[in-house]
Design a protein around this nucleic acid. Sequence first.
DNA 1: ATGAAAGCGCTAACAT
DNA 2: ATGTTAGCGCTTTCAT
Lengths: 333, 333
Amino acid sequence: MEKQTITIYDVAREAAVSMATVSRVVNGNPNVKPATRKKVLEVIDKLDYRPNAVARGLASKKTTTVGVIIPDVTNIYFSSLARGIDDVASMYKYNIILANSDSNEQKEVQVLNTLLAKQVDGIIYMGNSISDYFREQVKRTKTPVVIAGSIDDKEELESVHIDFTAAFEEAVSELIHRGNKKIAFVSGPLSQPINGKYRLQGYKNALAKNNIEFDQDLVFETDYSSHAGEILWPALSSSNAQAAIVGDDELAIGVLNGAKDAGVNVPDEFEVITSNNTRITEMSRPKLSSITQPLYDIGAVAMRFLTKMMNEEEIDEKTVNLPFGYIKRGTTK
Amino acid sequence: MEKQTITIYDVAREAAVSMATVSRVVNGNPNVKPATRKKVLEVIDKLDYRPNAVARGLASKKTTTVGVIIPDVTNIYFSSLARGIDDVASMYKYNIILANSDSNEQKEVQVLNTLLAKQVDGIIYMGNSISDYFREQVKRTKTPVVIAGSIDDKEELESVHIDFTAAFEEAVSELIHRGNKKIAFVSGPLSQPINGKYRLQGYKNALAKNNIEFDQDLVFETDYSSHAGEILWPALSSSNAQAAIVGDDELAIGVLNGAKDAGVNVPDEFEVITSNNTRITEMSRPKLSSITQPLYDIGAVAMRFLTKMMNEEEIDEKTVNLPFGYIKRGTTK
DNA sequence: ATGAAAGCGCTAACAT
DNA sequence: ATGTTAGCGCTTTCAT
């Protein structure tokens, strides 16, 4: 014999009121006489009634859940954002459907569609390149979408992030001012605008301001992994680079370790600055100097932004730029 | 003018069939004449119809979403499990509602309740201690729950993990056989059964088998963070420990770095073995020797296990123990 | 302040 | 192979 799920109808009958009244007390509608409210609440407690969020979602056309597309939960840059997202989401009574995309266009679009099918009230997208197809899908839906921790190079979608160009310009200037002329630019795929467009531009800006000629041979494109960084050393070494600015912390710790393994003294013989200031930066010896970004806040603000869109509040700016900084640790002199 | 959402009724009318038939083709029911199916599919495509999963959930009492309770997404041990969970979930057409609990009993129970309100088909719990209250709630619901990566010391709930006792026993034996007599046991809260019961037991077993007396002063209880490990060195040093077995990788990298910062040569003067073999183990120098566990698989198997429970298939064992191992890297001689 | 009743968009018997 | 028809459990006008 199946355990009978108890519904709003059951409590209405038991409390001798209508379903509408029960609904009102459950939803905190003030138009209920205190005595009635009390009685209903007692019955709810007695019957151990739990509102069915699915039924509510169907009737109200709001699910109080938002979709979150992430390249890989295991990546601490993105998981840090995700943490900020979830915290603000629960603050506003939302839940999160988390889906890994592996930065794969197909998966991203497919995930987007199942998220929409599930009637999420909004979506946060994390990932470093927005494909045209994805963009089209987003533009066709009325479900709000915001991008967290990356940038839409077409500037069509709402997003929250730091100014990657300015941050790189500042970090590279730092390196230059300490006497380095040959500075390697190390990042993930240049096809991702965050690398090939914004960060690289910042790098070039710093060189230009200091009258250093840009050298394509100092640009290293690889994977976002510490292993990729480790095996990069021979190439880095033969380029005669004196320092490196690296676009990802795991990659950077790999670069650092690759150099150390080759007997290089960091920072005396080679300096490195990384980009995300995740906990990883504190795990190496020497510790990694880094551009700082408010990772948790980027997620938090993105989620807050999304709540505004879901409530159809006025949005002043499509893009919110959060402040970045720089922290000197042991990998710079 | 609001954009009209198109429903199953619209495609039924347009295709000149009944809603039931449309439902059948959408759900892949074979009882549809090929010609009819084709026609319906065309209309679906033409109208750009997307089934409403919420309505489907209400009617079918299945949401194809499972809840995942995680202490902190930012923790790579748990996020690695989460990745396995999500991959298997999508394989079976499920989505994941991810909720951070901070290992806080209140939040865990609250999250459990909202998950149940959202009518998830199943739940995966990650966390190192199952409170009585949580356990009671779980036992009252018919929604299946499985624990991933930790152990229910009351052995009432289904779970997937390695044999923590045997793994610690093996790792500590390793340390003993290499000549260490005074071995520190470093872990998170001993109130968590995984530490205070299972791992500690393994540690004691290894000592006993080698006729070494257990010394309470060699047991160090702290937080799961690299910083906690770093500042542990003075205490570790004055205990005259010659080696340490550490229950968490971030904590272990902290212990390693604390020792190095104090001028200690690892592994010559001090050896360390960690427990989870996450990517963190490859980021230090020397790299961390570690107990190995199939993290991704633990998540994957837990999710697979859950699908069986959701389908009400027969389950032979409540507990599935996955194999562990040991990998020697640079922090052991 | 409360109730009646019509959906929300779909599935699942049941009938044909 | 296809159609009819109840619901699923709730919210939301609209009355009163």
